[in-house]
Design a protein around this nucleic acid. Structure first.
Length: 270
DNA sequence: ACTATTTCCTGGATGC
DNA sequence: TGCATCCAGGAAATAG
């Protein structure tokens, strides 16, 4: 499940592999491709475009493109739950659920594979694609604190809200809350300044650590070269319901908040 | 204006 | 072994 660290890893890998390359043609799967922009718009933007830059915005991968006439556009890819962007030789076996194939001038292919089809492809023409939320690794402390002021929703839900912060998903929300000692059900508005400060630094720390380890590979997450990440070994609460807390040995609890499983230590988190 | 719930989608795990 | 059921979850849509 690609969240900020996984998407960052994929984007960095793609940047290394395809920056400067030219997309010669694009194939988009059957009728039910996961497109947000019409297939025609996507094809027009991608064909003959040079990849100027690859970056991450929130949970999205953004390819900044330059067409032969110098026109700019962005190919925006959201990996959803199970999406993969793979760069491979053209004779590599075609994975089931391949929804898009871009043929590159270098002879390789860039493939979008997504079994569960929550991923989305779209084109942005505004020249400067920005996400809906603030970047958790860039936002300053006071802005971070202000984001949650007055919100009656559980802090866990607020962290998952992409309009506030972009890129935080279920795993890193749980892990950051554990490290900050805050229960996921606490109303955002009920947290003290000190707690929000701690949450901000815990979130930064956990995201940066995860990026260093190439993200968390829970099910089918791999980077652009097909490599798995290692941060799943550092999870302290996520996916550990019933197991002993690494700090106090109390059994980790699992509850459902906003339809998402949430994991926490009943002793360490208040 | 906010917050909560439902829906989309498939593969893997579980249970009888 | 086989079949049905449940579960995972990002974000848009819908409901309250």
């Amino acid at each position: 499940m690609p969240e900020l660290p996984e998407v960052e890893t994929v984007a960095r890998g793609l940047a290394k592999l395809v920056t400067g390359d030219v997309i010669e043609s694009i194939w988009l799967g059957g009728k039910k491709e996961p497109l947000k922009s019409p297939a025609k718009v996507i094809a027009r933007a991608l064909e003959n475009a040079r990849v100027h830059r690859v970056r991450r915005v929130g949970k999205q991968i953004v390819f900044d493109l330059l067409d032969p006439a110098g026109g700019r556009s962005q190919w925006v890819v959201h990996l959803g739950m199970t999406g993969q962007m793979l760069v491979c030789p053209p004779d590599r076996e075609l994975k089931k659920h391949t929804h898009a194939i871009a043929k590159l001038a270098s002879g390789r292919e860039l493939r979008f594979v997504d079994p569960r089809r929550f991923g989305r492809l779209s084109i942005a023409m505004n020249g400067d694609f920005t996400g809906t939320g603030l970047e958790p690794l860039e936002v300053d402390r006071e802005t971070f604190i202000r984001l949650f002021r007055g919100r009656q929703t559980p802090i866990k839900s607020a962290l998952l809200n992409q309009k506030l912060l972009g890129g935080v998903g279920n795993i890193y929300a749980d892990e950051a809350l554990f490290r900050a000692g805050i229960r996921p059900r606490r109303r955002a508005a009920s947290l003290t300044r000190e707690q929000l400060k701690k949450l901000n630094s815990s979130l930064r720390k956990v995201l940066n650590e995860a990026i260093c380890l190439g993200g968390s590979s829970i099910s089918d997450y791999v980077d652009a070269a097909g490599e798995r990440g290692f941060f799943q070994m550092r999870h302290r609460v996520y996916g550990r319901a019933g197991e002993a807390c690494v700090v106090c040995k109390a059994p980790i609890k699992r509850v459902v908040i906003a339809g998402r499983s949430s994991h926490y230590c009943p002793r360490c988190q208040k």
